[in-house]
Amino acid sequence: MLPAGEGAVDGAQRLIQGAVPPADEDTFRRAILVAMRALAAEGITSDTGPALGPGREGILGGAQGRSGIRAFNALASSVELPPAHGRPRGARRARGGSRGFPRGPADGDPGDRGASPASASRSQDLRRWRPGEPDGAHALRLRRDGNGSLAVGGDSAEAQEQTLRNMILEGHRADHQVAVHVTGDKATDIAVDAMIEAMRAFPRPDPRHYGIHADFVSDTTLARMAEWGIGANMNPTIKWLISDSAVENVGEELAAREWPYRSALRAGTWVTSASDAPVTAPTWRQAVATMMLREGRATGRVSGPEERIGLIPALRTYSTTAAYQDSRKTGRARPSPARSPTSA
Rank of each mutant, 00 (worst) to 15 (best):
A71I: 03
F72W: 09
N73W: 02
N73L: 06
N73P: 02
N73F: 04
A74W: 00
A74Q: 08
A74L: 06
A74Y: 03
L75P: 14
A76V: 06
A76K: 00
A76D: 09
A76N: 10
S77R: 14
S78Y: 12
S78P: 14
S78K: 13
S78M: 12
S78R: 09
V79P: 10
V79H: 12
E80K: 08
E80H: 11
L81D: 13
L81G: 06
L81N: 11
L81P: 09
P82G: 08
P82Q: 04
P82Y: 07
P83E: 09
P83H: 06
P83L: 07
P83V: 01
P83R: 01
A84D: 15
A84R: 01
A84S: 15
H85V: 01
H85K: 01
H85E: 06
H85C: 02
H85F: 13
H85P: 01
G86H: 14
G86W: 01
G86F: 00
R87Q: 15
R87V: 06
P88S: 11
P88Y: 02
P88E: 11
P88G: 04
R89S: 04
R89W: 05
R89A: 07
R89L: 15
G90N: 13
G90E: 06
G90I: 12
G90W: 10
G90A: 15
G90L: 11
A91S: 14
A91P: 05
R92G: 03
R92K: 08
R92H: 07
R92C: 06
R93E: 13
A94P: 09
A94H: 09
R95W: 07
R95A: 14
R95G: 06
R95K: 02
R95F: 05
G96P: 05
G96L: 10
G96K: 02
G97E: 14
S98A: 12
S98K: 00
R99F: 09
R99D: 14
R99T: 15
R99E: 15
G100I: 10
G100E: 11
G100P: 03
G100C: 08
F101M: 11
F101S: 08
F101H: 13
F101D: 14
P102R: 00
P102S: 07
P102I: 00
P102C: 12
P102Y: 09
P102Q: 01
R103M: 05
R103K: 06
R103H: 04
R103I: 00
G104Q: 08
G104Y: 10
G104H: 10
G104W: 12
G104K: 07
G104L: 09
P105V: 08
P105T: 03
P105H: 05
P105A: 12
P105L: 07
A106T: 13
A106F: 02
A106I: 11
D107W: 05
D107F: 12
D107T: 12
G108H: 07
G108E: 07
G108A: 02
G108R: 08
G108W: 03
D109T: 07
D109F: 08
D109M: 08
D109R: 00
D109C: 15
P110C: 13
P110S: 12
P110R: 03
P110K: 05
G111W: 01
G111E: 00
G111T: 00
